[in-house]
Design a protein around this nucleic acid. Structure first.
Length: 836
DNA sequence: ACCTCTGGCTGGATAT
DNA sequence: ATATCCAGCCAG
């Protein structure tokens, strides 16, 4: 028998080192707090339930007497009054409160009443709210007894970790060292192996057009594919003559009775700690549940529970990868924007180079073997996605879970603002601070005072320097490393320190604004972000590129490094996000205001040293100088003046600017071409134009000197002429000319205008093709009335060649103009040639 | 339950 | 004909 201290609960992390926290929350009745923990040894899930159903509430003293007098609370049983002192960050005072632990809802003489109903002061008089669900997770009394425990893994002692931190991070304040050590303890903890199974189902609708709905599960489940660490199989409903043959990829189990098949699937689901689906929250799991109910399976036998917007499992946890891949931060930072479309086919094609089985007939027309293959492929792709890059997805979720102090189950369903909220709440609770309500922050701190450049934005952002047009050789790029997070750290920015209550801080002003920052105490957001920044820069980034470490260890450090970057990048953004619970407009605008100040100062400094500034955007400056010592001077100036790292980023052998901001092309010393913002880089343009553009880039990569350039310009001319000729001669497939644009909402919801991709989407709908928000529409420009046609229906003769020539012109001009080349004359020469 | 932010470019639709 | 808005994609 072992006592387990649950720490950190909601931490996705360790429970006494042996168990791995998978999930936490409430059951369907919203009564019992539970924890789902994995024993990595046995792969069994241990579920701890708080049988009391208690929830803690905090009240200020003035309410407590009233509450104590209310005998109904005691009669309803299970009530504790615990005095607590909390720090109020907005008032900068301590508040004495009483935490009342009571079951909720309370049973008052047979009727159930929620505490909110019982205590009317809740909404009106309580100054601060404490989100009880999250609060529950850190109540120290959550000590459970588990039958067959046993600590196996020993962690380094606090002293040992501190020692490592000191040797690695140099001179640190005691507090900082402890804070960093705490973080490393959490982040360096082992990642256990976790068994999982990916699941996909196929439903055979009576009529092919009917979309199966779990609210009315009339259509049978005909196949269930399962692919994971322990099983690879397809359960098939044996309709006529079932597919009995096995192959080497998966095993088929045939069922003549659908109910039996579902029960078998439930058995497999129940024997895995983690079930992976793609859109299982909205479809697969709810359908399995409701279909099973319809077939008379009792509730106890169904391991699936349906929440308001998620589906969870009674024994293990369910991770819906659709949710996870939809997350912008995951898409951009973890996967480098490699996938665009949020479909299983789109994601797996981009990440694995392997898509779904393409069908040219309806499900009902498939032979049993085809159906099994088709269904299995989906589960297989899911499994491979999870297993890819040494189980990157799971490791990433686990790391995010540890950073955000949030269980895996929740990590995959929340966006970055949810992760950051949870982390900050965790910190606030750890310090015993009251968590202010959004409106209290807004009332006290006020709104924004700066005016955005872009209409409709809330405050002013960054500066973009007008580029010097033309080609520039030997350009050095410097950039401020993590500018905004560094500013938050160095300038002590936090919701409680901005515009604080002390008169003596008012002189500590933010440029361009009337705002000021506290001098007396250090800001919570500032220090949390500071620690994250420090451990990333000084621990995880170096480890990720340390060649003395084994490949897989480096890979793991890289995952942590990336996850930390997600938090850093979003840490500023959430400050200006209205739905963020610590939304604080003056804080957001102060961050960018300081950024502008620092950025402009650096530019002035460069100019004062006689260095020409070619371009700059937010935190990066492009400098033309043949005196490296001058550039180093700026770097040391930034560090001594602002304590910010202005780093050498790269040297461009040459860089080409048009007049446009955020648009340039540069070739680095290693002959790598970097393209920013140019149309030729955008992923929605036709591959025909993209290929021509890429070919031009390959030519430009060779250029080292001004003489090379002249030669290459001639080559580019003939290259463009030949692509132009191809266009004119129509030696292409319509597919090559397709624009690929994402439908951000469903076609009928475009009211103000009808962009081209929407027109194409409507044409698809007319012909019975299903089109939903998020689909990427492929269309070509045509000569008919609408001017567009979905590429599926396009005929080569109908394509509007002139439109494409125009598009080519504008795409290439962005590069040709600064090189003093003229698209028209290249093309003109070509047509003249053909004319002769 | 699509949701971190602002700045900047593009082409096409729509209003004037 | 011209200005403005809309929508999408990208830089940082």
């Amino acid at each position: 028998m072992t006592f387990i201290r649950v720490w950190p609960i909601g931490g996705g992390g360790q429970v006494s080192g042996r168990y791995f926290l998978l999930g936490a929350g409430y059951d369907g009745q919203e009564r019992l707090a539970y924890l789902k923990m994995l024993d990595p040894e046995t792969q069994k899930v241990i579920i701890l339930k708080d049988k009391t159903g208690h929830k803690p509430y905090c009240f200020t003293d003035k309410h407590v007497e009233e509450l104590r007098a209310d005998t109904r609370l005691r009669e309803a049983g299970a009530v504790d009054f615990i005095p607590v002192t909390k720090y109020d960050p907005l008032k900068d005072t301590h508040v004495v409160m009483t935490k009342i632990v009571a079951s909720d809802p309370l049973d008052i003489g047979g009727t159930k009443k929620s505490i909110r109903e019982l205590i009317p002061c809740w909404e009106a008089d309580i100054q601060y709210h404490l989100n009880y669900i999250y609060d529950m997770r850190i109540i120290p009394s959550l000590t459970y007894v588990v039958e067959d425990g046993g600590l196996r893994q020993e962690y380094a002692s606090d002293e040992r970790i501190l020692e490592i931190v000191r040797s690695r991070f140099g001179d640190l304040e005691e507090d900082d060292a402890r804070r960093i050590a705490e973080w490393l303890r959490v982040l360096e903890a082992d990642h256990p192996h976790i068994d999982f199974v990916a699941l996909d189902i196929e439903i055979l609708a009576e009529t092919p057009t009917r979309v199966p709905s779990y609210t009315n599960p009339v259509d049978p489940v005909v196949a269930i594919s399962l692919s994971g660490t322990k099983v690879r199989k397809v359960l098939m409903l044996d309709r006529k003559n079932g597919y009995a043959a096995d192959n080497n990829q998966y095993v088929v189990e045939n069922f003549s009775d659908e109910k039996e098949m579902l029960l078998r699937a439930f058995e497999i689901i129940g024997s895995h700690p983690v079930v992976i689906t793609f859109n299982g929250d909205d479809f697969d799991l709810p359908y399995l549940r409701s279909r099973a109910e319809k077939l008379g399976v009792s509730r106890e036998q169904i391991p699936i529970q349906i929440g308001r917007d998620s589906a969870t499992l009674k024994s293990g946890i369910h991770l819906d990868l659709y949710r996870f891949f939809n997350n912008k931060s995951v898409q951009v930072y973890a996967f480098d924007n490699r996938y665009r479309e949020f479909t299983l086919d789109g994601i797996s094609t981009a990440l694995l180079g392997k898509g779904k089985v393409q069908l040219d007939k309806t499900l009902s027309e498939l032979t049993p073997q085809e159906l099994a293959d088709y269904c299995y492929r989906d589960a297989e792709i899911l499994r491979e996605l999870v297993e890819a890059s040494d189980r990157l997805i799971i490791r990433l979720m686990a790391v995010i879970s540890r950073i955000s102090r949030m269980p895996l189950e929740d990590v995959c369903r929340h966006g970055v603002s949810g992760w950051i909220r949870n982390l900050l709440y965790w910190e606030l609770r750890g310090l015993n601070w009251l968590i202010p309500r959004k409106e209290d922050i807004l009332n006290q701190k006020g709104g924004t005072v700066t005016k955005a450049i872009i209409e409709g934005k809330k405050y002013r952002g960054a500066i973009v320097v007008e580029p010097v047009p033309g080609i520039h050789f030997n350009v050095t790029v410097l950039d401020f490393a993590s500018l905004y997070p560094s500013i938050l750290k160095e300038y002590n920015l936090s919701f409680e320190t901005i515009n604080c209550r002390h008169d003596e801080c008012r002189s500590n002003t933010i440029p361009e604004t009337p705002h000021w920052v506290c001098r007396k105490s250090s800001g919570i957001q500032s220090s949390v972000i500071g620690v994250i920044r420090d451990i990333r820069v000084r621990w995880y980034k170096p480890k990720a590129s340390d060649r003395t470490l084994p490949q897989e260890v480096r890979g793991w450090y890289d995952v942590v490094q990336k996850a930390l970057k997600v938090f850093l990048n979003a840490s500023y953004g959430v400050l200006g996000f209205e739905e963020f619970p610590l939304y604080c407009p003056p804080l957001a605008e102060s961050t960018t205001a300081i950024g502008r100040y620092v950025f402009m100062s650096a530019i002035e400094k460069a100019k004062s040293l006689g260095i020409q500034v070619i371009y700059g955007d937010t935190d990066s400056i492009f400098l033309k100088s043949d005196r490296p010592e001058k550039i180093s001077e700026i770097v040391s100036w930034a560090s001594s003046n602002f304590r910010l790292d202005l780093e050498f980023d790269k040297i461009y052998r040459y860089v080409v600017f048009s007049r446009r901001k955020k648009n340039y092309l540069g070739v680095t010393e290693k002959s790598v071409v970097e393209v920013k913002g140019l149309t030729g880089k955008k992923r929605n343009i036709p591959v025909f134009i993209k290929e021509a553009f890429d070919e031009m880039l390959r030519k430009l990569a060779e250029v080292r000197t001004a003489e090379d350039l002249e030669r290459v310009k001639t080559e580019i001319r003939s290259l463009l002429a030949s692509w132009y000729r191809r266009l004119k001669d129509r030696t292409f497939e319509p597919e090559e000319l397709a624009f690929r644009v994402m439908l951000s909402k469903s076609p009928e919801r475009y009211e103000k205008t009808t962009p081209q991709h929407v027109k194409a989407a409507r044409k698809l709908q007319e012909r019975g093709v299903k089109v939903v928000a998020g689909d990427i529409i492929r269309y070509v420009k045509t000569k008919d009335r609408e001017g567009v046609s979905p590429v599926q229906f396009a005929r080569k003769e109908n394509i509007d060649i002139d439109k494409y020539i125009e598009y080519m012109r504008s795409t290439f001009e962005q590069v040709l103009d600064p090189l003093e080349m003229d698209f028209e004359s290249i093309v003109g020469a070509t047509s003249l040639e053909s004319f002769l």
